[in-house]
């Protein structure tokens, strides 16, 4: 099109009415002859009821999600997800990009509050209270539900101060040196950094930085640790260390991990939730259950397709 201001002006007029509604993005109801299959090539069940495998072991529930939805402005990112997060287990959230894994994770400690225009519906029960209740203080929630991020993000402070930071702001009155050592030991980093605690956290290697972030998270004694693709920026050796660490930490903490990598989910997690974004890019829970069951005996066709690598 020529860069002519008259023609351009015409094309900037409000969207013409002859454009088929189905090709527009937004929330308009699809016309009757439009099917999800035709648009995405995936068969979508209209029901929100996800497939749930039976949980055979006796396990407490750390978090109970009920109909959790999240919106960014007008855009709905996840739609009415319900599932339990078993205590002292590793729960993996898997699914293709843009299916709402990270959004769901960030709902669990109210990190979404920090994004302007973000909104959450539904209920996340934690110790008998609803985390999503506006009266519940997000600061308190985040202290008890820690988080580790995709890219290691140590503060530009010494290793010691990185670990002590959370304890300091939360008014820790005990022996700080012991707390730091303890956290670093549990994060399997102590032996590598014990002689250089004054060194900047940024001077460590990527894998060490990520373990430092884990140590930082556990130093405030959270009950639950959320991990958002914690190994995606790391090399295979460092990834292996992080995965071993997750298994060890699961003895004391409840861990929820978002991962892109199905092998990783299979290796580290006890439970797996498979999420998928359907039409309008809204993420929904498809299947939840013990990892063993999900991987060996998926009940939903889409889960099987994903696990066998048919798409993703």
């Amino acid at each position: 099109m020529p860069r002519n201001f008259f023609t351009l002006m015409r094309s900037s007029a409000p969207a013409a009415t002859d454009v088929p509604a189905a090709t527009r993005s937004g929330h308009g109801t699809p016309p009757p002859n439009w099917t999800a299959e035709a648009a995405t090539g995936v068969h979508l069940d209209a029901s929100l009821e996800a497939v749930r495998h039976e949980i055979t072991e006796e396990v407490d529930t750390a978090l109970q999600l009920r109909d959790v939805s999240a919106f960014y402005g007008d855009f709905q990112a996840i739609d009415r997800m319900s599932m339990p997060i078993p205590r002292n287990r590793v729960t993996a959230l898997i699914g293709p990009s843009g299916c709402g894994k990270s959004t769901l994770l960030r709902c669990c400690n109210r990190m979404n509050d920090l994004i302007p225009g973000a909104r959450m519906d539904g209920e996340i029960e934690f110790e008998g209270r609803n985390l999503l209740d506006p009266n519940i203080d997000a600061v308190e929630v985040r202290r008890r539900i820690g988080m580790v991020f995709q890219k290691p993000n140590p503060f530009p402070k010494s290793i010691y101060e990185n670990v002590a930071f959370g304890a300091r702001i939360n008014g820790y009155s005990g022996d700080m040196d012991r707390l730091v050592e303890d956290a670093l030991r549990r994060a399997a980093l102590w032996d590598e950094v014990r002689d250089e605690l004054d060194k900047s956290g940024l001077a460590l290697s990527g894998g060490q930085q990520q373990r430092l972030c884990i140590a930082r998270a556990i130093a405030v004694q959270p009950e639950i640790i959320l991990m958002d693709e914690p190994a995606s920026a790391l090399d295979p050796v460092a990834t292996l260390k992080i995965e071993d660490l997750m298994r060890e930490l699961a003895e004391e903490y409840t861990i929820v991990v978002v991962t892109h990598n199905m092998q990783q989910a299979g290796r580290v997690s006890d439970y797996t939730a498979f999420l998928l974004a359907g039409e309008e890019r809204v993420g929904r829970l498809v299947e939840f259950g013990p990892t063993q069951d999900i991987f060996t005996n998926p009940l939903d066709q889409r889960t099987e397709d994903y696990i066998t690598g048919r798409y993703g």
Binding site: V139, R142, M147, N153, P154, F165, R216, V220
Partner: peptide, 13 residues
């Protein structure tokens, strides 16, 4: 941003 998020996730105001 990641630094801020790291601090928020520890329960900072």
């Amino acid at each position: 941003r990641s630094l801020r998020e790291g601090a928020y996730a520890l329960g900072s105001t």
